[in-house]
């Protein structure tokens, strides 16, 4: 499915601010894998997702989706294979456009955008049905500007949009981090439903160790641009926050450096 071969990404090379964000990272995801990603601040989690999505080119290595090498493909062309949700709820939707307009933009992801009318009546029906499952009352507000919605509502819509047309890869970059605990739990449960329904191969970054343990079939931990822990199957089910922290200490030789992860 997804194959990362020896990916390296260095920011500000040859300067005093040089930062090796990804250091020779290799990772293979199988079809239907739901992988949670944890790690301290600056461990390279977001860089990993952005490198896969094509936000910036990588310095070395190969990114392969379903036997197709996408390393050199620009971001907007990779979008055909990839659904994304960002940490900031403002990022995933266009604030000045209506709910239905945003959803139709996602519906046409990876398709040629010609001069036919953007939204058909049949689309509208489909959008309503999708919004209904969110149980947020949004199905009656198709022509509301997304900018008027709350962060949780926007994130829920972004999730729907990202999962449309069942992308090959579902990338979630701390998408519950900016929400209050109750909304975060709701958004996380919507995430689980969508992943289940569309059988999405998923990479989900989270700062919440418990969430990382409770969700998905595989967990990876990153530190200093490397994957230092990769646990799946039965072994993952037995994990606790304490054993994770212990494992981190053993492999990296330091304490887990994220206040948020410890507090939450």
């Amino acid at each position: 499915m997804l194959e990362l071969k020896n990916i390296t990404k260095i920011f500000n090379p040859d300067t005093i601010n040089e930062k090796v964000a990804l250091n020779d990272v290799s990772l293979t995801l199988n079809d239907g894998d739901f992988v949670t990603v944890i790690g301290g601040n600056g461990a390279g989690k977001s860089t990993l997702l952005n490198a896969i999505a094509g936000t910036y080119p990588v310095d070395e290595g190969q990114i392969i989706i379903d036997d197709q090498d996408i390393t050199r493909l620009p971001e907007h062309k990779r979008a055909k294979f990839i659904g994304r949700v960002f940490q900031d709820p403002m990022t995933g939707t266009a604030a000045d456009m209506w709910i239905e307009e945003n959803m139709s933009l996602a519906l046409n992801r990876g398709k040629p955008r010609g001069f036919s009318w953007a939204i058909q009546e049949s689309d509208r029906k489909a959008f309503k049905k999708m919004l209904m499952r969110l149980d947020l009352g949004l199905e009656e507000r198709l022509s509301t500007k997304v900018g008027l919605l709350s962060g949780g509502q926007r994130q829920a819509i972004t999730l729907l949009m990202a999962s449309m047309n069942s992308p090959k890869l579902f990338l979630l970059d701390e998408h519950t981090a900016a929400l209050d605990p109750k909304t975060a739990a709701k958004v996380l449960s919507i995430t689980r439903e969508l992943v289940e329904e569309h059988q999405l191969t998923t990479l989900m970054i989270t700062h919440n160790m418990q969430d990382a343990i409770d969700n998905g079939n595989r967990l990876i931990m990153m530190n200093a641009g490397k994957i230092i822990l990769d646990i799946s199957g039965e072994e993952k089910k037995k994990l606790t926050v304490e054993t994770l922290l212990q494992a981190f200490k053993e492999t990296s030789g330091a304490a887990f450096a994220s206040d948020r992860a410890l507090l939450s």
């Binding site: 999505a53 979008a79 055909k80 994304r84 933009l105 996602a106 955008r113 036919s116 953007a118």
Partner: peptide, 28 residues
């Protein structure tokens, strides 16, 4: 008419939120 088409909507999205537009496969 133009800004109501798929092409025109993509242009509006480009101006409104570039990052989102690219994530939706739009060549901004």
């Amino acid at each position: 008419w133009f800004f109501g088409t798929k092409f025109g909507s993509a242009m509006r999205a480009t101006g409104c939120n570039e990052k989102m537009a690219r994530a939706q496969g739009i060549n901004t």
